[in-house]
Design a protein around this nucleic acid. Structure first.
Lengths: 184, 184
DNA sequence: AGCTGTGAACATATTCACAGCC
DNA sequence: GGCTGTGAATATGTTCACAGCT
């Protein structure tokens, strides 16, 4: 069992906020006792839609694509990597994390067969738009774009662009605002 | 020149919010006209601390470390990569993006010499804590941790943990909430 | 005329504080 | 006794609306 005070401390939050937020998932705490960890995890994962495995494809088997295919948290968060695709013949047929890299022309059939709705773009910037077009034509409706390019998509397709340098900028912002530690 | 209405449209925001936010940087718009793009960029970059180059080190020259070292936006956002470090002899001496990968034992001297305050951890999870300890001992005060591990740091050191699967989870959440498109 | 800067109005988020249950 | 669930109180964030400058 875990109390709202425990959770609040771990997350640097106010206990009342923890309780109020959890109450939106339906009341699953026990008064005088706290929350059951197992049930709570299940409840939260359910609300986030992580209890059923979602199939994804990764296009671009460079360093970033390989890193994602290997990323432990990726598969453990309820995602199932249907395939990793590339154009470069020297990469095709090699394996990353037991995934054989496929030629991009396998994309359409795989997406259809596994009913894939989400795609990850880890290509060089120049290839990102073409990749997105191809994904969308194949039936993908949600795209995670790691390429440093803004891609155009039709109405109804959802894109999230992730810029890896943003986090460093945030860190740097706090770093630049530190009170200068000076001997007095 | 660009108006708050232009910016608001591009960012999917209310014009008043744009104006209010920009007003916190000091009033640099011209009434009846708008904001000067050049000056605005300069002003914003200045406030974010991106006008001076900040030195960073990357420890872990695997796929993710390599991807970061190559990442265009990384260096163009005002960061200067002092060095990329690893333990694996087969990686040391190879180059990524004109950076020769160094043995980790060069870390301390490089951090001191370039007055590095920020470090990026892209090691396997098992090595993350040791890496952090070593960075902190060398004088680093802000750490960006891509390894899927929670690391312990002393008071006064700032850590940001980045989980690459979080963005996919967010995308997946919206995907799961889509109104089901059904022929009527 | 057209757009900024900003107080006032409104909306949303967080915290308090306590009744209710175990 | 101890912890949840939640209305009421407070704090924060957003938008309106308009005076004031160019």
């Amino acid at each position: 069992m875990v109390s709202s005070a425990n959770l609040a401390e771990a997350a640097n939050l106010n206990p009342a906020k923890v309780r109020k937020d959890l109450s939106y998932l339906g009341s699953n705490g026990i008064r005088g006792v706290g929350y059951d960890r197992i049930q709570l995890c299940y409840e939260i994962r359910g609300h986030l839609g992580l209890n059923q495995e979602a199939p994804v494809v990764i296009v671009g088997a460079g360093n970033l694509g390989s890193a994602l295919a290997n990323y432990g948290g990726f598969s453990s968060s309820g995602f199932y990597i249907v395939g990793v695709y590339d154009l470069d013949p020297s990469r095709i047929g090699t394996t990353i994390n037991n995934q054989e890299i496929q030629h991009i022309h396998h994309l359409e059939a795989d997406v259809a067969h596994h009913k894939v709705t989400m795609g990850v773009i880890t290509t060089p910037p120049g290839a990102a738009q073409d990749t997105a077009d191809r994904m969308i034509a194949a039936g993908i409706r949600s795209i995670l774009n790691f390429a440093p390019t803004v891609i155009q998509v039709p109405e109804g397709v959802d894109v999230r662009r992730v810029d890896l340098s943003t986090e460093l900028q945030i860190l740097s912002y706090y770093e630049s605002r530190r009170p200068t530690e000076q001997a007095s």
